[in-house]
Amino acid sequence: MTTMTIAKAINEGLRATLAANPKSLLMGEDIGPLGGVYRVTDGLIGEFGPDRVVDTPLAESGIIGTAIGLALRGYSPVCEIQFDGFVFPGFNQITTQLAKIHSRSNGNLSVPVVIRIPYGGGIGSIEHHSESPEALFAHTAGLRIISPSNPHDAYWMIQQAVECQDPVIVFEPKRRYWLKGDVDVENPGPSEDPFKAHVLREGTDATVVAYGPLVPVALAAANAAEEDGRSVEVIDLRSISPIDFDTVTASVQKTGRLIVAHEAPTFGGIGGEIAARISERAFHSLEAPVIRVGGFHMPYPVAKVEEDYLPDIDRILEALDRALSY
């Protein structure tokens, strides 16, 4: 067991992947000598050279498009998109090409490309640096989307993403890059399946589902609620596509109440999808409507007001109050 940050855990996961799989390579802007703007690839170019850690031209469609070509030739590219808000020049390649090649080739081709995207707000940054676009990708069949919330998961999930034969987008919670935690580099333990949700905290009165950067917030809210005598179960979704509905359903059948929290706007978001599916799967267990806690229907606001935009402990507790009032 080693203690490290999420950023270091991804770095170590990538190092393990590059060492174990000679056909794997990293591509992105400034990922070479600089080690990426968040230093996630720090030191890797020195160990594996510029053919395996590739500083690319500044062009996101080019990064994804050439990664597809490398995958068609038998390589396993891991692309870094510098910030969430800059993935959109590559959106066409991701949704019309990467997601569909296996299907449109009748299964003859597969393109196991991994795309790493630091995402989310709370870092006081300028526009386009704090967004949560995961629902835009989750709507596209053919992609898998995961988001680690702690260093152990980060270490294993990046490696599992590369091993997966389908395209995987890894949304990395950038404001948690410096969150420290224990990592077992020998054994993934319960993190063996990256597409399975984890129950982080058991409870009986309500369930809070979160992923990525809001997992620590959900846990803190559950702790606060406990002081008021409320027993809250917290689920770390881990995988945004597919969603492990079995784990969420089982929890709701026990607690009868569900709150879904994410930074992305609630309208058309993952929370809505979970609410709809759970209303079908566990209608008779629900004591209250599923309540979503998320961003507002506005472009991500300027940094000086982002605290009013981002779901926090109080927003989750307010939702809990509403759920328990039914």
């Binding site: 053919d51 597809i68 490398l70 068609l72 590219p77 066409n92 019309t96």
Partner: peptide, 23 residues
């Protein structure tokens, strides 16, 4: 390769494939 209908998307795939040949 399969036909590509989203114009020019395949030009990037071609370059990536060529980068694979180099490797």
């Amino acid at each position: 390769h399969l036909y590509t209908l989203v114009l020019a998307a395949q030009t990037l795939h071609a370059v990536g494939y060529a980068m694979g040949i180099q490797r």
